[in-house]
Design a protein around this nucleic acid. Structure first.
Lengths: 164, 164
DNA sequence: ATTTTATTATTAACATGTTATGCAAATGAA
DNA sequence: TTCATTTGCATAACATGTTAATAATAAAAT
């Protein structure tokens, strides 16, 4: 089994990015079609979900929470606004900021889809086991933390950005 | 902290797809820039890596190994072929198939990048711990297996799809 | 042999990922 | 205030993700 020779580049079966990608695909495989039936992409759903958790977020904050880059989010916001699932208004304290909120239609769509999402995740929890799922979350959080820590050398030192 | 009410839709911090996505981003964050310096995307690198492992793959097989869909792969192949990093020839037993191989230039590029990749993954292994990394692989493999198993009810029966 | 079906690969069309650029508004330094 | 810098957001340009449609070849069925 463990014929992987040390210090060699691992095969795809043991590539961490590929393993993470495969797991993500497996988890989403069942849910994406049900989103499509409602005319939403997975990313659009993330935005609606974030706005359901908290209304009136600006676009930068929304990007952080949904893990979307600004250019993608900018297009998604435009799309959802045209479909009147969200509403965009101007911040009163900062004229650069847009403030986003769900419309009634957007809220309604969320309420329709959310139960299916809950059921889906419950199914995965049941199949995989609650304990293992929690362990997986812990490991994922930890690997992110360790990697982030190792590159945040100081942020006040000059050693963070030079040599662009 | 753990105010997540049961049977509710989890917040983003406890969404499995998001956790997997974040982990993947963290792992790749350091490596993608070094690929870009060599004019390659992560996906193009996957293709080159797969061809280094085994030459003469057809495009379908390449897609399976690199976890890329045919349309994406079709464009990537065209791109890499134009840059003469790969060579495309016709299968002699099946006129539909293309057979792909690395050119000398492609092989050279692989040899230049591979050590950096090895070093990167060694760094992650060191930071995160070998045991934990193996545990993470196991959990990821297992969740994929469990999910796949649950949807492969029989494939001949009709009871595999309804009630999404 | 002819028809049907399945496989291989491409292209179309649209959404998103990603880096670079641009611009307007806010902030800070002089 | 004036000027430089930063921040918030949009757009450009190109690569990829994704579903659907298409063309060519192969395999199977009749």
């Amino acid at each position: 089994m463990a014929t992987t020779s040390v210090k060699q580049l691992r095969g795809f079966d043991r590539s961490l990015p590929m393993a993470l990608l495969r797991a993500r695909e497996a988890v989403m495989k069942k849910f994406v079609p049900s989103l499509r039936e409602n005319g939403l992409s997975a990313q659009q759903w993330r935005v609606i979900r974030a706005l359901n958790e908290e209304q009136g977020l600006d676009i930068t904050e929304l990007g952080d929470r949904c893990f979307l880059l600004m250019p993608s989010l900018s297009r998604i916001i435009r799309n959802l606004e045209q479909r009147t699932l969200i509403r965009r208004s101007q911040s009163e304290t900062d004229n650069r900021r847009s403030v986003i909120a769900l419309t009634a239609a957007g809220q309604k769509l969320f309420n329709e889809i959310a139960p299916v999402s809950v059921e889906h995740y419950n199914g995965i929890t049941e199949k995989f086991g609650y304990g293992k799922l929690e362990l997986l979350y812990e490991l994922l959080d930890e690997i992110v933390a360790k990697i982030d820590a190792s590159e945040t050398v100081s942020a006040s030192q000059g050693s963070g950005q030079e040599k662009i």
